[in-house]
């Protein structure tokens, strides 16, 4: 079966910076695929090459077996993109912007009307259909981005950080919606900083760092292969240089939460607690978990996804 997206040896440089060093990815038709990586890893460049915003230096990118450059009309009509950055517009109301978006994909207004109404209703924007984008909250703008990506009913939905900056409630609502779309047969390519999001939604993930795909598989495969476990310790805020004190461990630290990735938690936990106590950290809570995607990411890249 022809894959929905096939990327072979994709390379891209910006002046002196090498963004992609020869990426290979295959995303099956109907798959929910997550692309994980820290900032600057090459996720958005990969997406932008697929959609035609960035020109590749080498390699190939295909959508349903067609080249994204020579067969761009076909490949672009198959994809809907919810970009990370919000679009702004000063002139037109939301429903008109959606009609324009459908029109760019060759769908006249009378044919797009049903879909526009359905999306505005489903994404909770019906009451705002006559509002301008500047009048929307951040969460509403995010929902509008998703409506815009879906208005031409694409087979492939590309979600670039679709829940960035939204509250927990909306994030869960969007996850529910993405799952529904996936069940309805859409292929979804997701990039995210929320590893939990990828773990919860994706059939398959690829971890990308410094322009290379360093690991690919189902979340279960990846966590199983590494056999790592996680230790989460909440400590009172500290000025101590944790990196200098915990040199033997791979960990992330943010807002009082330390997360360690270890091979054997029973062996590592007493040592970690001992070290933290020695440097004067007040331990509030300790939790050990089975290996998660976050642990896999941490052990492969040596850093947290937000670093």
């Amino acid at each position: 079966m022809t894959p929905a997206i096939s990327i072979q040896n994709l390379k891209k440089s910006y002046d002196d910076t090498v963004a992609l060093k020869g990426i290979n990815l295959t995303i099956g038709d109907g798959e929910f695929f997550g692309l994980l990586g820290p900032n600057g890893a090459g996720k958005t460049t990969t997406i932008n090459i697929l959609t035609g915003l960035v020109r590749k230096n080498e390699g190939s990118a295909e959508v349903f077996g067609k080249d994204t450059v020579s067969d761009y009309r076909f490949t672009r009509s198959q994809m809907g993109i919810s970009a990370q950055e919000f679009t702004q517009d000063w002139f037109f109301p939301l429903d008109k912007l959606l009609f324009f978006q459908a029109g760019y994909y060759g769908i006249p207004k009378n044919e797009a009307k049903e879909k526009v109404d359905e999306l505005l209703l489903r994404l909770g924007l019906e009451e705002k259909r006559s509002s301008r984008l500047r009048q929307l909250s951040g969460g509403m703008k995010r929902r509008f981005q998703i409506a815009k990506a879906l208005v031409h009913d694409p087979k492939i939905l590309i979600l670039d950080e679709p829940t960035a900056g939204v509250d927990v409630e909306l994030r869960h609502e969007l996850w529910q919606y993405f799952s529904e779309l996936h069940k309805a047969g859409k292929t979804i390519l997701l990039t995210t900083h929320y590893i939990e999001e990828a773990e919860k939604l994706c059939d398959k993930v690829a971890i990308i760092d410094k322009g290379n795909v360093i690991k690919e598989g189902t979340p279960k495969e990846l966590t199983g292969q590494l056999g790592h476990a996680g230790i989460t310790i909440n400590i009172s805020d500290t000025d101590v240089d944790l990196n200098a004190s915990l040199t033997d461990f791979t960990f992330t630290y943010a807002e009082g939460r330390l997360h360690f990735t270890v091979q054997d938690p029973e062996e590592a936990l007493p040592i970690i607690i001992n070290k933290l106590t020695q440097i004067g950290c007040h331990i509030q809570r300790v939790e050990t978990t089975k290996s998660s995607l976050e642990d896999v990411f941490l052990s492969l890249t040596g850093k947290g996804i937000n670093e």
């Binding site: 959609t51 035609g52 915003l53 761009y72 009309r73 076909f74 672009r76 009509s77 994809m79 993109i81 970009a83 950055e85 919000f86 679009t87 702004q88 517009d89 000063w90 978006q101 760019y104 994909y105 060759g106 815009k148």
Partner: peptide
Amino acid sequence: LQMKLLGQLPDLLQAPLS
């Protein structure tokens, strides 16, 4: 220029428009 500065241009460049 407005399309460029407001981030609207990708909507056109990613669509099946020549």
